[in-house]
Design a protein around this nucleic acid. Structure first.
Length: 452
DNA sequence: AAACGTCACAACCGCGTGCTT
DNA sequence: CAAGCACGCGGTTGTGACGTT
């Protein structure tokens, strides 16, 4: 579609906004909300009180304020609403006029968070902004391009790959070796962009039968996500306390016999380290250094229950994610859905916040009752409801619970079986793939898992 | 003081996607 | 099902402020 139709109309102002325009737009939105943006410019002009003027054909006629009512001579100001296109109004409101915007320079914490999120999400500025209350995607994008990029380069870090610049070529070489089908351990110190390299290499002719790494944050359309990869990326990028140092320590290991999931599971059971089973029966080994508190540092707003201190190893975290259940009220319409493994450990009670941009509810945005009502009405929820209805496993117990649950994420940490949950994830994913779920929504689901 | 370069940031542009008709 | 509309997103551009020569 491209350009908005209103943009083709002539005589629309461009360039910087005047204070008068700002005021007009602010007042209008404060009073009526934005509604349909394309109609905002006109309506904003119409919002002048009738006692001060009238409008006809979208021209507001103002009277000199010094004149008495009976003596008013109309001062014809050509004031055709806001001479801006709706798109421009939307942008101005979102990026500048919104009252909840945080002005001023970025704090160090924000800076670090942006770097870490960028390692996971890439240039998904809107998603990054969703985790930085009061900041806009545009603001973050500008900050990144003008400051962080240079700072990282200065420190010898590639801002795209988040790797030390000198290691880029080494990483490529590793990927190349991987593509030759070698079984073994690949050190995943590299975030998403480096995974892309691995992917490129793995898709080569010599490895067509091999499962490839999915660069989940980058391209999702070609292949569905595996949960393991989400977490892998998440951990890879998030487990560094120093955002400009090497991203440590998530390791990806291959089972010696990838053809048999039973073999893999047996190996898993025997292994002292927590291990993760990807969709393709490859094993993901979590480094022992990855602890719950690592997660909590990068997910500051997650309610404490979601990252219980009892979860001191990644296997438990893994189990929780694998066993995710969706219990928002909007999903609960169909109680005949097949049930999920009853030992599942995570219940997502706010699907809208989880699957949309606000994957986690920040303290500042902890919803009050009104917000909750609003969230429940969001179209996104309805869409997910449709997708999940009848095809997505959900326990009846969870559904009934969901009606009275609070709107934040909650986690039960009892985790009797990691591996049954892993299998559950696999089943879920198969169902998702076989159902008619649009790529973007699967992507949202994927991002959701990736952020836990 | 003027010219020039750099930087930050606001705003625009084009595209993708979902919804409605 | 196709077309049109509306919105959101990410990349790019324009512009003013500031610093340097």
């Amino acid at each position: 579609m491209g350009r908005h139709t209103c943009c083709y109309k002539q005589k629309l102002r461009k360039g910087l906004w005047s204070p008068e325009e700002d005021e007009k737009l602010s007042k209008h939105i404060a009073k009526y909300g934005h509604g349909c943006w394309s109609s905002v410019p006109k309506q904003a002009g119409d919002a002048v009180p009738a006692t001060q003027g009238c409008n006809a054909w979208n021209f507001n006629i103002f009277f000199l304020p010094c004149c008495s009512v009976s003596d008013r001579s109309p001062l014809f100001l050509l004031h055709a609403g806001l001479q801006r296109c709706g798109k421009s109004c939307r942008l101005r409101w979102i990026n500048y006029l919104r009252p909840d915007l945080k002005r001023g320079s970025f704090s160090e914490q924000e800076e670090n968070l942006i770097i870490e999120l960028h390692a996971v999400l890439g240039n998904r500025w809107s998603q990054i902004a969703a985790r930085l209350p009061g900041r806009t995607d545009n603001e973050i994008k500008n900050f990144w391009n003008s400051f962080i990029k240079k700072m990282l380069k200065k420190r010898g870090i590639d801002p795209n790959t988040h790797k030390p610049l000198a290691e880029d070529k080494v990483g490529e070489a590793k990927a190349s070796r991987t593509s030759e089908g070698a079984s073994g351990s690949v050190d995943l110190r590299v975030p998403a962009a480096a995974l892309a390299s691995l992917n490129d290499a793995a898709r080569g002719p010599a490895s067509s039968s091999m499962p490839v790494f999915d660069t989940c944050a980058v391209e999702r359309k070609a292949s569905p996500m595996t949960k393991a990869i989400f977490l892998d990326q998440f951990i890879t990028s998030q487990s560094s306390s120093d955002p400009v140092s090497v991203f440590p320590l998530a390791q990806l290991s291959f089972a010696t016999d990838c053809s048999s999931s039973e073999t893999a599971l047996a190996e898993l059971s025997a292994c002292p380290n927590p291990l993760w089973l990807s969709q393709n029966s490859r094993l993901l080994e979590m480094n022992r250094d990855f602890h719950c508190n690592t997660v909590s540092t990068c997910l500051p707003s997650v309610p404490t229950t979601i990252l219980s201190t009892s979860m001191d190893n990644s296997a438990q975290i893994c189990a929780g994610i694998d066993g995710m259940q969706y219990s928002d009220a909007v999903y609960s319409g169909n109680s005949s859905q097949s049930s999920m493994n009853s030992t599942d450990t995570v219940e997502m009670q706010n699907s809208s916040s989880f699957f949309h941009n606000d994957i986690f509810l920040w303290p500042e945005s902890t919803p009050d009752k009104d917000d909750q009502v609003q969230l429940e009405k969001e179209p996104e929820d309805l869409k997910w409801s449709q997708y999940l209805d009848g095809s997505f496993p959900m326990s009846a117990a969870t559904q009934s619970q969901s009606q009275s649950q609070p709107l934040h994420c909650d986690v039960k940490t009892e985790s009797p079986s990691v591996f049954s949950d892993l299998v559950t994830w696999h089943q879920i994913q198969q169902q998702l793939q076989s159902s008619d779920i649009h790529g973007k929504d699967f992507q949202m689901l994927s991002v959701g898992f990736g952020q836990v």
